[in-house]
Structures are given as C-alpha cells and as structure tokens.
C-alpha cells in the first residue's frame, strides 16, 4: 500500500460513512430507526439488497474460483430471478399489508407465538454464526496479503460498522450501502480494464478470451445433471430458486431491506432490479478472474498464492521437486499459449487442435503440481482442506496494479465487508427487540424505550460479531462447517412461509411440527448423504409441507390442506 492507496482507501470509506449518517438524520422513533419510516425509494433498496448479499468473500473468492475452476459458479444465480418474481408477487404485498417489522412477526399473525419464536431463534442462530465470519474472513486474507494485524482489522471494521449502524439505524445502513455499491462497481470496472491493459502487446482482448476458453475457464453453462455437483444448469435453476426464496423471503437481513419501501411497487422494483442485475454482475466478477488467469499465462504465478504457507513448505525437502515440475509446466504452458494464438490466427484447424492439446496438457500439469503443493501444506501441519482460492485476486492486485487502484480495490473489499455486516447486525438487533424483547420481556414500554433497546441490541450484536471474529482462528476447520451451517436452517423456514402463504387453513401446531421435521430431514441429509447443499432447502421445504399437511388433515380434515386459489392470493392477516 503506497501513500496514494491510503488516500483513496480512507477517502472512500470516510465519504461512505459520512453520507450514510447525513442521510439518516431524524431516525428518532422505532419505526424510523428500524424501517426508515417506510420512506425508501426503490433504487436505494435495490442497491442495499445487492450490497447486503455481496460480502467481501464474494469478490475475493469468486475471482479466485474463476481462476481455478472457470465461470460455472454463475449458474448458482440462475434461480434468483425466479425467486424474486415469486417474492415480489406474493411476499411483498403480504408483509406490507401486515405492517410488520420482521418476517417472523407475520408468523404469529398467521399461526401462533411458538411458530414465531421458533422462526426468530432459527434466524438468530444462523445469522449470528455468520455475522462474525463476515468480518473475520476478509481480515484473515488482508493479514496474509498486506500484513495487517488480523485482530486490529476486525476491531476497526467492526467498530466502524457498529458506530454508523447504531447511530443512524436502517437509513444509515441503506444509504451507506448505496455508496458502497458505487465504490464496488467502480473498483470492479477499473480492475477489469487494468487486467486487460496489463496483457502482453502481442495478445489482444479477443486472444485473451480465446485462451481462457481453451483452458476451460469460460464454462458458464454445464447442462449435465449431477446431484453431487453444486454448479450446473439444473442445480442453479431448481436448487438455486429454493435457496434464494429462502434467503430473500425468510431471512430478516434481506426482508428488512424491502420492508422500508415507500410502497409495494417500490419494494417490488427493488427486487426485480436485482433479478435483472445480479447475474450480469456475477458474470463480470467471474470474468475478471478468467482474465487474471490469462495474465498469469505470461507472468509466472507462485505455486501457491497463500504466501505464508508457501514460505513454510518452501524450506521442506519434498517441495523442491514440486517447484521444479511447476517451473517446467509454466514454461510449457506459456509457449503453448503463444503457439495456440498463432495457430488460431493462421486458420489451420489441425494445427490449432494440436496446439490446444499441448496447452491443455501443460495446464493439467500445473494443476497437478499446485495440488501436490496444497497436499504438502496439509501434510506438514497446515489446515485440512487447504486452498489458496481466496488469495489469488488480492495477490494479483497488490503486486501488479498501479498506485491508487490498489487502494480502491481494498476499499471495495472493506466496503463489501461493512455493507454485509451492517445488514446482519441491524437485522439481528431488530429480531432481538421486536420478536423476543418486546414480545416476551417488556410488552408495553414507550417508543423511546424500544428505540434505546434497538440501539443497545445493535451494540450487543456488533460487539458479539467482533469478538466471534477475534476467536474465529481458533475454530480452525470449524469455519468451513459454520459456513455450511447457513444452508442447514433455511429449508424449514421456507417451508413454514410456504404454508403460511399457500395453505390458508393450516394452523400453528401443524406448522411448528413441520418445521421441526424439516430441520431433522435437512440434518439427516447433510450427515448421511452426498447430496450437494444447494438442494437442502428444497428437501427441507418439502418435508415441512408434507408433515404439516398430514398433521392438518389428521386434526382438521382434508379440507384444511386445500391450497389458496391463485385468484385470491395468500391470506392477509387482520
């Protein structure tokens, strides 16, 4: 980081937070503090929804994933537009008419208090676990790449987030998100342009795309179906739809974004903007990773991008032959890439196929030697399942990008961390106060009292996230498990909301039992099968529906399991 980088970084972050706090003046009632007085325009909600979903790891990891595995991760988002249509058509009007602060408050209006309490607790458990990781994951990467002390980074980021979230409530969060997305878009565009400019003179943009494709890095659509494969067209369309229905329809960190809308139409527009913009945005991020891959065809990359681990295994005797093989494979690949471009321009299909074979063989050898180095990391006491994916993009940025742009990219990473974290902390505080404190501990206090309780809850969850992040390193490989935990809880929540919207005669006890059964089914699937986690939400939802409808029929007769007619729409609570 050079002086110009620090100037860009600090100026970006200070202006974001100052603008957020300026726009949040007057958040002095619970309604304004938690729902912005339902005054938000669609574009602010749309960018806030996008910013809350895009954490730092989205940018760090997605570019790295494209570098090592190509662009097929984009298929994960194919279900998002379908989910957004369902939520815009069904969920938004129900929540708006019900005048709720949280999604789980609606469950009591529709079912009963125990179903609301279970929904709230599932959300607090799941989102509470990820709140610390949202701050910890980028701090870990920045500590390796830039040498920043991990704990200092988590405390600085956490304190900043808590300050503006606690002072300004959801208005500060939303308007900061708008600014953060502006910085993120600018950073991404400048990164891509810079990568392309840094390519050798003899390699045009068309050649770069051709080379990335020949190495399998532009595999945006895979049509083969496989239950165990996370990313193909079918898992994206079907599994992804269920996942995004759960995330945008049942997770308070997203629901609260569109509950702040001026009207149903404004909230719908904010969701449909994401339905249209999210896939191209992810494609763009993945494409940056593919271009970084092409850049490293002509500039030798390290065997592993995680410098600390590379230095550690570098001293071991077993590493020398791996490094030698890697060096040879890199030279072979560079020569093959240049020959392939030449053959491609010559228009000789036979020569092109021959060079393509040599190019792919060299790439395979590079993948093999990198894999051997990663295994050596594990074998010599490193973390189990070691991968350097999260370090690829930032290694490239800090080593090759010019002064000022490095600062901008680091600002993108920190802005994404803060926008995701502020949304989580804000929603955790809202559910804690509205669904638990106000409902069970202090029912008839003044608005001023609940406003103060909301600020205290924000401070509590912010401090919790920072403390969790501080101890996350000691959790070791549990981090991986905790990340997976997110997908373990959504399915049963989704099933409960589908019951609420689509089966107007099903009652609370059946829904409650269905949620318990759905959760058990997801945990069983995760423990005893190899089915990819992308399918858990659909499985959990199906078990909730089957169980609740069976109980409902047994208790109240077959008519109780009749779905709502498409004309009447979901039931509106009184």
């Amino acid at each position: 980081m050079r002086p110009l980088d620090w100037i860009v970084l600090v100026a970006s972050l200070v202006s974001i937070i100052a603008y957020g706090l300026y726009r949040s003046r007057g958040s002095n009632t619970v309604d304004r503090y938690l729902l912005a007085g339902k005054s938000m325009p669609w574009y602010a909600m749309a960018l806030s929804i996008m910013a809350t979903q895009a954490s730092a790891i989205t940018f760090i990891s997605t570019t790295g994933q494209s570098y090592v595995d190509g662009m097929r991760f984009v298929q994960f988002y194919f279900g998002l537009p379908l989910a957004m249509i369902v939520i815009a058509a069904v969920v938004v009007p129900v929540f708006h008419h019900a005048r709720v602060y949280t999604a789980y408050e609606y469950l009591e209006k529709r079912f009963d208090s125990k179903t609301r309490a279970l929904g709230s607790l599932i959300f607090l458990a799941q989102r509470g676990l990820s709140a610390g990781l949202t701050i910890y994951a980028p701090a870990l990467v920045l500590s390796v790449i830039l040498g920043w002390p991990e704990r200092l980074t988590t405390v600085c980021v956490g304190a900043t987030v808590v300050t503006y979230t606690m002072l300004g409530g959801i208005k500060a969060v939303t308007w900061s998100d708008v600014q953060q997305m502006a910085v993120i878009f600018a950073g991404l565009v400048i990164s891509l342009v810079t990568v392309i400019v840094l390519l050798p003179q003899s390699v045009s943009f068309g050649d770069a795309v051709y080379l990335a494709g020949a190495a399998g890095r532009l595999n945006a659509v895979t049509t083969t179906f496989d239950w165990n494969d996370r990313f193909n067209l079918w898992s994206g369309l079907f599994g992804g739809t269920f996942l995004f229905l759960s995330y945008f329809g049942c997770d308070q960190s997203q629901v609260q974004r569109y509950l702040t809308g001026k009207s149903i139409a404004q909230s719908r527009l904010s969701l449909l903007f994401n339905a249209v913009a999210k896939i191209p945005m992810q494609f763009f991020i993945l494409f940056i990773g593919a271009m970084v891959f092409v850049f490293y065809l002509f500039v030798q990359p390290p065997v592993l991008f995680q410098r600390a681990e590379l230095a550690r295994i570098g001293a071991r005797g077993e590493f020398a032959p791996i490094a030698g093989q890697y060096q040879q494979a890199y030279e072979d690949r560079r020569r093959a890439a240049l020959a392939l471009v030449e053959a491609h321009h010559s228009g000789d299909p036979a020569a092109e196929e021959r060079q393509k074979g040599a190019y792919r063989a060299a790439q395979k050898e590079i993948d093999r030697t990198r894999s051997a180095a990663a295994q050596l990391v594990e074998k010599s006491g490193g973390e189990a399942g070691f991968t350097d994916t999260n370090y690829i993009f930032l290694s490239f940025v800090t080593r090759y990008l010019p002064a000022g742009i490095v600062g901008l990219v680091i600002a993108v990473i920190l802005a994404a961390t803060m926008s995701a974290s502020s949304g989580e902390i804000n929603s955790l505080a809202t559910v804690s106060v509205i669904d638990l404190y106000q409902r069970y501990l202090k029912r008839d206090a003044s608005d001023r009292h609940y406003l103060m309780a909301s600020r205290c809850a924000t401070l509590f969850w912010g401090a919790y996230a920072v403390l969790f992040a501080g101890y996350a390193r000691r959790l070791g490989s549990l981090i991986v498990a905790v990340n997976k935990v997110g997908s373990l809880f959504y399915g049963s929540l989704l099933g409960c909301f589908v019951l609420a919207f689509a089966f107007p005669r099903v009652k609370g006890t059946a829904a409650f039992a269905g949620m318990i059964a759905g959760e058990a089914a997801i945990l069983w699937t995760a423990e005893y099968t190899n089915i990819s986690w992308l399918w858990y939400n659909g499985i959990g939802c199906a078990v909730v529906l089957a169980t609740a409808l069976a109980i409902s029929v047994a208790r109240d007769g077959a008519a109780s399991a009749r779905p709502a007619s498409p004309r009447s729409g979901p039931p509106q609570p009184a």
Partner: peptide, 27 residues
Amino acid sequence: WRKVYQAVIVYLAVVIAGFYLFTRAYR
C-alpha cells in the same frame, strides 16, 4: 405486474441461452 414478471422470465431465458452459446463458442 404480470407483464413485468413475464419480461424477467424471458430475460432469464435469453441470458441462459447467451451463456450457453458463449460456453460453446469458447471451449
């Protein structure tokens, strides 16, 4: 809104078809 939802579905179909052709063109 029905027309808006239909437009989003058509958009998704076009995007997937575009990505599919992109993948085939550059593999």
